[in-house]
Write a protein that binds this DNA or RNA. Structure first.
Lengths: 105, 105
DNA sequence: TTGACAGGCAACCATATGGTTGCATAATTC
DNA sequence: GAATTATGCAACCATATGGTTGCCTGTCAA
C-alpha cells in the first residue's frame, strides 16, 4: 500500500499512468516520446510503478509492453478514500462547529 | 493536487490523518502521544498536511486544534481515481488479451 | 509575576529521490 | 554476420525529505 502511494506521489509517474490510461500497452520507447527526460529516467519511474503494481509488463521479443493495473487504485479507494468519504459530512460539521465555537467564545 | 499526493505519500502522515479521523480536533501535543518521533517531526508533518489542505487548524488560546478536511480527498477521487475506476474492466481486459496473445503467438 | 506548558523557528544531518551519462546485452533487420 | 533497435545496469550528482536538537515566544495558572 505504501509503495502505491509513493508511486502516485510523483507528477511524472502520474503522467505516465495517464498516458497508459489513454493508450494501454505502450513500450518504453513510446512512453519516452514527449516526456522531457531521458529514457533511463522514464525507465526508473516505470520500475517504481511496477513495484507498486500499478503497471504490469509483458515482454514481446525485445519490446516491453506496459499496461495499467487498476486494482491497486481500486484498493486505495476501498480501504482509504472511501473511509474518509463516508464521514465527510461529519468532518465538515466538526470544522464548522469549531469555527462557530470560536466565534461565540 | 500535487501537494495532496505528496502529503499522502508518507506513512506517518497517513497515520496522523487516521488518528484525526478517529478523533477530530486534536492538539499537536495530543497527536504526538505514541508517535515515536519528536514534536518537531510531527509538527513538520502537520505543516505538509496543511499545505495540501488535508488538515485545517483552529487556534484556541495557546492550543492549536487540527481537523481533517475531507475535500481534497474527495477531489482526488473525483478527478483521478474515478477516471481509472470507470475503465477498470477495460484495463483488465487489455491485460488479459495481452497475456493471451502472447500465449498464442 | 513567575513558572509551566503549547507551540514555532532555525540549523543541522543522513538518506531517499529524480535525474544524468556511459556502457552492456538481447532481439531484429538488412 | 553486421548494423540497428529496445532495453537494462551501474555509477554518479544535486536536491528533497524526514528526522534531530536547541532556543524563542506566547498563554495560562498558582
Amino acid at each position: 500500500m505504501d509503495q502505491v502511494f509513493k508511486a502516485l506521489a510523483d507528477p511524472s509517474r502520474r503522467a505516465i499512468l495517464d498516458r497508459l490510461h489513454a493508450s494501454n500497452g505502450q513500450t518504453l520507447t513510446q512512453l519516452c516520446e514527449g516526456m522531457a527526460m531521458s529514457r533511463q529516467a522514464v525507465s526508473k519511474h516505470l520500475a517504481v510503478l511496477e513495484a507498486g503494481n500499478l503497471v504490469v509488463c509483458q515482454w514481446r521479443g525485445r519490446e516491453k509492453l506496459h499496461y495499467v493495473n487498476p486494482v491497486p487504485i481500486q484498493d486505495i479507494y476501498d480501504r482509504w478514500i472511501g473511509k474518509y468519504e463516508r464521514d465527510r459530512l461529519r468532518a465538515l460539521a466538526d470544522l464548522k462547529r469549531a469555527l462557530e465555537d470560536n466565534r461565540d467564545g
